[in-house]
Design a protein around this nucleic acid. Structure first.
Length: 236
DNA sequence: GCGACAG
DNA sequence: ATCTTGTCGC
C-alpha cells in the first residue's frame, strides 16, 4: 500500500494538538463500504526498557477470518504515551508495516479509540485520514464519554456519549467479560463499525484481526528481549 | 486546583 | 503499554 504522510511526527505536545484540530476537518464517515473481503488488524508493542517498538498488521479474509497476509516493522519509539496523543506514538511505526502490504484491506481495526476522543482524533481516525481507508477503533477501555450499563449477552451494546453526542458504542463481545469500546475511525458509520467488530469476534473478547496483530507483536518483542530472561533462568 | 486518562 | 503467580470460575 502507498502511504503519503502530510504532517510531521516529531512535534511538541501543543503542535500535536493543533494537528489533531486541523485533521478533524478532514474526517469523512460515508465512504463506500460494501461487505469487506479483507479485514486488517493493527497493533503495537513497546520495549519495557529500550525506546523501541514493533508494529504489526495482519490481514484476515472475511467472513472466514483466516490470516492471508501479515507484515511487521521494528523501530524507535520517540513520542511518550500521553492520553489523547497515542497516534503520535504509534502511527509512524504502523505505517512502516502497512506500507509492505501487497493486499489492500477493505477496513483496518485498530487497538484504540476512533471518534471517541476529546478532539475526535483517536488513533483509528488519525490512521484513516492518513491512508484514506475505512478504519474502526476498538479499545479495551474508555478514554472519554459516559454510558449506561451494558447488557450481559454477547452482542449487547449501549451508546457512548460525550455530552449529547454519540461518539461510540460499548459492546459486549463475550458473556462474562468487560465490554469493548467501539467507535468509527474513518469512512464508516458507528452501526457498521459495531456490527463489523462483532462479526470479527469468535470465542474471545478481542476481535480476531486485532488479536492476530497483538499475538504477532508480542512474539516479536519476546524473541527480541528473550536475552535477559534466559540469563536469569540460567543462573539457577 | 483536582481527578481522569486509549496504549 | 509493562511487571508478575497463582488462582477462581465457566
Amino acid at each position: 500500500m502507498i502511504i503519503r504522510t502530510f504532517h510531521p511526527w516529531n512535534v511538541s505536545y501543543q503542535q500535536a494538538v493543533t494537528i489533531q484540530e486541523e485533521l478533524r476537518n478532514r474526517i469523512v464517515l460515508d465512504l463506500p463500504f460494501p461487505t469487506p473481503n479483507y479485514v486488517a488488524g493493527v497493533d503495537v508493542s513497546t520495549s519495557k526498557t529500550l525506546s523501541i517498538g514493533w508494529a504489526a498488521v495482519v490481514v484476515l479474509s472475511f467472513p472466514e477470518l483466516r490470516v492471508v497476509e501479515q507484515r511487521w516493522a521494528e523501530g524507535t519509539i520517540t513520542f511518550p504515551y500521553i492520553p489523547g496523543l497515542l497516534s503520535f506514538r504509534e502511527i509512524p511505526l504502523v505505517c512502516k508495516a502497512i506500507e509492505q502490504l501487497s493486499i489492500e484491506p477493505d477496513v483496518f481495526l485498530c487497538d484504540g479509540q476512533g471518534l471517541a476522543h476529546p478532539r475526535r482524533m483517536g488513533i483509528a481516525t488519525h490512521l484513516g485520514v492518513i491512508i484514506n481507508k475505512p478504519t474502526v477503533g476498538c479499545a479495551k477501555s474508555r478514554l472519554i464519554g459516559t454510558h449506561e450499563e451494558v447488557g450481559s449477552k454477547k452482542g449487547a451494546y449501549t451508546p457512548l456519549m460525550d455530552k449529547k453526542e454519540v461518539i461510540g458504542a460499548v459492546l459486549r463481545t463475550r458473556q462474562g467479560v468487560k465490554p469493548v469500546f467501539v467507535s468509527p475511525g474513518y469512512g464508516i458509520s458507528l452501526k457498521v463499525a459495531r456490527t463489523l467488530v462483532l462479526s470479527c469476534v469468535t470465542k474471545y473478547r478481542i476481535p480476531e484481526p486485532i488479536r492476530a496483530a497483538h499475538n504477532l507483536v508480542t512474539l516479536l518483542r519476546n524473541s527480541r528481549e528473550a536475552g535477559q530472561n534466559h540469563t536469569l533462568y540460567s543462573c539457577s
